[in-house]
Design a protein around this nucleic acid. Structure first.
Length: 511
RNA sequence: GGGGUGUUAGCUCAGCUGGUAGAGCAGCGGACUUUUAAUCCGUUUGUCGUGGGUUCGAUCCCCGCACACCCUACCA
């Protein structure tokens, strides 16, 4: 670090930061004259706070004193209480917090006076290290009686107020590092997210699935109905698209003989933001040969239940003050059945009357496409009347062919597909179906999509000739499903906004 | 994209239907050898988001803009 750099950094300087820079300057000068480093990296802690509490928290001083347990710990100083010649400091590491008791008399260094005086000027947020012996204070708190104390990293920016914490949502999202320092709850959320992903991964591996990675840059965006981000490859001078779904690549792998594959990765959709939508979101998508949508529903249900238990210890959760029970078998309803259950004012005759449905949907302020058939109209009414009420896990089945261009049609009814979507807390969490493996039918469906695109449906799919070629080699009968990981984590961690489960959510450029 | 709410010290927040701002924390100085948001005494700090307008005078009223949050739309 040199002087020139300071000008670049000094954007939002204030007197607090200025004071700390002065302290750092003194630390540098002191280090220089002693031949040490201002930012030393020669200290290795041998314990984490939580381990100390777990191993020694149960003992009182009668047991601790004779043991004389010597520990080295390091972390961020979160609280400091100086009382003349003795002080307490609370240090936080990735596992939790531990209290230090620092008294001049206990410091063994020959410069103990100077070290103790220096400590009095260290700031909350500084990274410090200590060695000492465990003991219990008067109030019974396990603490370290410090014999050696060091400052490892000077913190130049003040932390949020120690009691109220970080209240500003914007700062929580833009400066997640600050949020993580001060919010136990935020740390817990992302630890739970990691457990969810780990549990899903091992669940898939336990069920003979192969984890794969398919392209994020697509020459043709496919696998979903969504607006893509467009980018450009310079060397090839070609337009490329950030993937909106991995589906068509994963199915190519099934053609190739990987009969069970899954991928946990990001999808990108160039659409609006909301508490349920981030432009890049994580999806776990999987395909299993010789299975169908009925098998997928059972499997998905077990996968989600397993993930919830791994992260929280229970399949019975609380979401936004309301119980959410994932332990019971998930309900299954057809689109029409769901409308009848949650909007019983409609008669079956009305629900099969395209003219009536079209008029009814308009009342909700949405305009169905001109070419929408009965199934699509029923789906639109379902979305308006029933979807948000599906609190308990519910599979909705019998999606119309016209909105399911990659799904296998039902053998009993060519108008509907063997497809489901899973709704929990009124939100879509998963979408799966028996895959369409008839190459000629798939080609015809792509042609229909192209027509829809020409007719103004911007989200209709492109014709993917290589995917058709792959299907022409023969894809075994297969079931495939995608689970929205962010929404699943929201549900499991009781988070109201998708931004609370994404470490660095998309934000507008800072003002 | 549309609607609502918000933006005051580094942080958490007050601020009376208009008279150029306060508290707590943090910081700085002092007291204090078992504290728990330590306590006690003293003390520094503000383009009141931003640009206009009304007014003798605007943190306050009006208009625009920026950013955030919530609702809504597209979607998972």
């Amino acid at each position: 670090m040199n002087e020139q750099n300071n000008e670049v950094v000094a954007i939002d300087e204030n007197h607090v930061i200025a004071e700390r820079r002065e302290k750092l300057k003194a630390i540098r000068e002191n280090a220089q004259s002693n031949g040490g480093a201002a930012f030393p990296n020669d200290f290795k802690p041998d314990y984490q706070a939580a381990v100390l509490h777990a191993e020694f928290g149960g003992f009182d001083n009668e047991i601790l004193d004779p043991k004389a347990v010597r520990v080295s710990i390091a972390g961020r100083m979160m609280l400091k209480r100086v009382m003349g010649k003795a002080s307490f400091a609370t240090v936080q590491d990735s596992s939790g917090r531990i209290q230090l008791f620092i008294s001049k008399d206990n410091l063994t260094d020959e410069n103990s006076e100077a070290i103790y005086d220096a400590f009095k000027h260290w700031d909350l947020g500084d990274i410090i290290a200590a060695k000492g012996v465990l003991f219990k204070t008067k109030t019974g708190e396990l603490s370290v009686k410090v014999s050696e104390l060091r400052l490892l990293t000077k913190s130049l920016r003040p932390l949020p107020e120690k009691f109220h914490g970080l209240q500003d949502q914007e700062v929580k999202y833009r400066q997640r590092y600050v949020d993580l320092i001060v919010s136990e709850e935020t740390r817990a959320t992302f630890i739970a997210r990691s457990k969810v992903v780990a549990a899903i991964r091992s669940f898939m591996l336990d069920n003979q699935f192969l984890e794969v990675e398919t392209p994020m840059l697509h020459p043709i965006p496919g696998g979903a109905s969504a607006k893509p981000f467009i980018t450009h490859h310079n060397a090839l001078d070609m337009q490329m698209y950030m993937r909106i779904a991995p589906e068509l690549y994963l199915k190519r792998l099934v053609v190739g003989g990987f009969e069970r594959v899954f991928e946990v990765n990001r999808n990108f959709r160039n659409e609006g933001l909301s508490v349920r939508h981030n432009p890049e979101f994580t999806m776990m998508e999987f395909y299993a040969a010789y299975t169908d949508y009925l098998w997928l529903m059972d499997f998905t249900e077990r996968c989600i239940r397993t993930a919830a238990i791994a992260a929280t210890g229970s399949a019975v959760l609380q979401y936004q003050g309301r119980e959410l029970d994932l332990s019971k078998p998930f309900q299954r309803l057809t689109i029409v059945g769901a409308i009848q259950k949650y909007a019983p004012q409609y008669t079956l005759a009305q629900l099969n009357d395209a003219v009536f449905l079209r008029a009814e949907i308009l009342k909700f302020g949405t305009k169905p496409f001109d070419h929408a058939g009965l199934g699509a109209l029923q789906l639109a009414l379902f979305e308006e009347t029933a979807e948000s009420q599906l609190w308990e896990p519910t599979y909705i089945i019998d999606y119309p062919v016209e909105v399911s261009p990659l799904a296998r049609a039902s053998d009993n009814n060519p108008e509907i597909t063997e497809r489901f979507e899973l709704f929990v807390t009124g939100r879509e969490i998963a979408n799966g179906f028996s895959e369409l493996n008839d190459a000629e039918d798939q080609a015809a469906r792509f042609h229909a999509q192209m027509k829809a695109k020409e007719a103004g449906d911007h989200e209709a799919m492109y014709y993917d000739a290589d995917f058709i070629r792959a299907l022409e080699y023969g894809m075994p009968p297969t079931g495939g499903c995608g689970i929205g990981i962010d929404r699943l984590v929201m549900m499991i961690t009781d988070s109201a906004s998708i931004r609370d489960v994404i470490l660095f959510p998309h934000m507008r450029a800072e003002a």
